[in-house]
Simulated assay, not measured.
Amino acid sequence: MTSLFTINCCKSFGCKNLGLASSPDYSWPEYRLGYAALHCRVCGSYPPLFNEEQFRSWLSEYLTDFAAKSGHFCPRCYQRETIRYGHNPQGSQRLQCRSCKKVWTPKQQPLATIVPPEQIATVPLIVPFQGACTEQKLYVLFSFDAIRGNVLHISSNFTPHLVGDSLRYRWRDNVEPEVIHDDIVERVRQRETLFLRRSQFDEIQYGSAMLKRSANGAVLRPVITAHGHFRILSHLWPEVKTHIISHECFLRGATITAWAESFRNRHASLWFIDEEINDNKCTLPWQLRGKTDQGWWQNQWQILEQGSNRKMVCLLTEGHVEKGISITLAAGRNFLDWLRQQTEFQCSARYSAHSVFQAIRALTGKYNALIDKR
């Protein structure tokens, strides 16, 4: 359970301390970059420090709530080995944990069975909701089976659980400019420049997210949402070897921490991707058109073309760069195109953050049912 709750650790691929909660090579707090950070003397990195006690408290509630609803693991000890344990008086299936013997009835009935994914692709989406005033913004993360196309897990930075002040999103009235440049290479470069302008790499300012004064719950920093999101996924499927994420630096940190053991042992690969798809039906093969180094870390990106379509992919870890041709966010694109056509989603600005997220959750279930019928 320790690794599940680890957040203050080295997040550098190739470092022997990647994902380790403690190391004699660590020193903290360090303020060289202008914020409290952990310093790893092996690789020289300075990952931001989080309030570990507040993170653990929130994450335990988040995991317990997810487990109690889904039945995918025990809501008490988080172990995945369970057995069917008869039915309650209403006829719903009960489960028992093989480890701690807890018995509970998952709220989602019948219990869903999800085929283990080979690749997980993750994209964010900003969704309007009705809060203290109109057009407040909710940060939502969607993860997909990159091959089959179904939604694996969704999270938002609205949480009904108690959170410490350090985990809350603070709007400073300085939203980052939207990167919409026509040239994909310039778009990647501008996004990297935006990362450097932040007070710290993971401190995104995406817009106001004030809840109604009478509303319960809180709005989390998106980086905290990401860490919780990927902990669920890695706990369910620790063996996944390929991870594809939209170009956002704190998604990299959250992913590599959640599957730290796999990355530390060089058993998994992590990819950034940016796509410009103008023809979804194009069947031409992708062609490599060049490479470019971008960002603080000078990561190498491949530039690929397929007719009028373009994409850029960046291997952030060890792996086979030639596989960049097959790396795609098609599962996310297809779902988001479908989602934007749904009336419930189009009306999100009228409803509370909690109601919006519940509506999106219901729509993902509907979408997955459509995928299963294909």
Rank of each mutant, 00 (worst) to 15 (best):
Q300L: 08
Q298I: 02
W271E: 06
W271V: 07
N278S: 13
K311N: 04
R289C: 04
E318S: 15
V321C: 10
L284K: 11
Q298L: 10
G307K: 01
E275W: 01
W271Y: 12
C314S: 10
V313N: 01
N309A: 05
R310D: 03
C282Q: 14
W297P: 09
I273L: 00
N278V: 07
R310C: 07
Q306L: 04
Q294K: 09
V313P: 00
G307E: 03
D293P: 09
E275P: 01
T283A: 08
W271D: 02
K291S: 12
Q306S: 08
Q300P: 11
R310G: 01
S308F: 11
G295Y: 04
E275F: 03
V313H: 03
L315T: 04
I273S: 00
N280T: 08
Q300R: 14
T292G: 02
E305I: 04
F272L: 04
E276G: 02
W296N: 13
D279W: 02
D274R: 14
G307F: 02
H320S: 12
I273C: 01
G319W: 06
N280E: 06
E318N: 15
I303W: 06
Q302Y: 02
G307R: 01
K281L: 06
E276V: 00
M312D: 00
H320V: 13
W286Q: 03
C314P: 07
W297M: 15
W286E: 03
